[in-house]
Amino acid sequence: MKPAAVLFDMDGTLVDSERVWGLALAELAVHAGGVLSDRARLAMVGTSMGTSMQLFRDDLGLPDRPEEPDVRWLTERVRALFAEGLVWRPGAMELLAAVRAAGIPTALVTSTGRSLVEVALKTLGPANFDVVVCGDEVQRPKPDPEPYVTAAALLGVPITACVAVEDSPSGVASAVAAGARVLAVPAELELAPVDGVHLRTTLTGVDPVFLATLLTV
């Protein structure tokens, strides 16, 4: 028995890009004349661009600050940092390679927009994913189940036979609500135990055989 598909989150799960986002957001805060708090930055992890920008404005006390110029600035800055190359999370490259070698369909399911994902895929390898679902390609991003439901539908597999690999509360909530079994490996945020979610500290040592066991518990 093996998963019908493995659905991978990107930021903080496959690559250590949350640190990149943190750097760019801190620079944007300085550009806006303020300092972004750690509390606000952590609250942004795993959320959509719209939610992050709302948290950004609230934290800086600038509720009327126009969103579009900040999104444009932030996107360009993150694109430049992504282009320098992204660092894989421990065990992530090996797990992705093993899943592909086992012939299991894969999807990349991320809250990040398509233009930045295309840059990240230069590190991740576009051939490693049968489908890619980006945050700006769904009506309701994580924590709504739509991204994971969409990925399973595009792959033509039942979501209940899929394993999602996540790192954030928002992503875990999305995958659980969609009906997938979830392997959660926290990066920036701690994760509380949730039914249907298997917690690990690292992806090191995880393989397709282990993922298959999650479908039976």
Rank of each mutant, 00 (worst) to 15 (best):
L55A: 07
S48H: 02
A24Y: 05
F210C: 07
S115D: 13
D144L: 05
V206A: 09
A151F: 01
E67G: 06
T123R: 08
L191Y: 06
L23D: 15
A175C: 10
A177S: 13
L215V: 00
A161V: 05
Q139A: 15
V35W: 00
V163H: 06
F210K: 07
Q139S: 14
A180L: 03
F8G: 10
I104A: 10
V71A: 10
R39C: 10
W21F: 14
E67M: 13
A175N: 12
E84V: 02
E27R: 11
T216W: 04
H31F: 11
S37A: 05
R77H: 06
M93F: 15
A192E: 14
V117D: 01
S48K: 02
A98P: 09
T123I: 03
V35R: 05
P105L: 12
G22C: 03
V194L: 14
S111Q: 07
G61P: 02
L7H: 05
T216I: 08
V209T: 15
A180T: 01
A177H: 06
P145Q: 11
V131D: 12
V109F: 03
V87Q: 15
M1V: 15
A98R: 14
V6W: 12
E18C: 05
A107I: 01
L191K: 06
V185F: 04
M49G: 08
D167T: 04
P63R: 00
P147I: 06
A98W: 09
P105I: 09
A173Y: 07
G125N: 12
S170F: 12
S170M: 11
V15E: 07
R39V: 14
P66T: 03
L121G: 02
A24H: 05
V132M: 06
A102Q: 08
K142G: 09
T112I: 07
T13M: 03
G156F: 10
A178P: 01
V132D: 07
S48W: 01
L189W: 02
C162F: 02
A26R: 09
V6T: 12
A187I: 00
L154D: 02
L191V: 03
A26C: 10
E166M: 07
A152K: 05
M49P: 02
D195N: 14
V71R: 15
A92L: 09
A43Q: 08
V176K: 12
W88L: 02
P3S: 06
D144M: 04
T150W: 08
L81H: 11
A178N: 01
G113P: 15
T202I: 07
I104H: 08
D59V: 00
L199W: 02
A5H: 13
E137G: 01
G103N: 07
R114C: 03
R19T: 11
A184F: 06
P169F: 13
G12N: 08
T112Q: 08
A152D: 03
A153Q: 08
G33V: 04
S17R: 06
D59S: 01
L124P: 11
L215I: 00
A212W: 07
R77E: 05
L214R: 07
S174M: 03
L108M: 14
T75I: 08
L25A: 11
E94T: 09
D195R: 15
P141E: 00
G179T: 00
A98I: 06
M1S: 15
V71H: 10
V165T: 11
V132E: 09
D64V: 05
L25T: 03
Q54T: 14
H198V: 15
L81Q: 09
V194S: 15
V15K: 03
S168T: 15
A192I: 04
V71Q: 13
G33P: 03
P145G: 10
T112G: 10
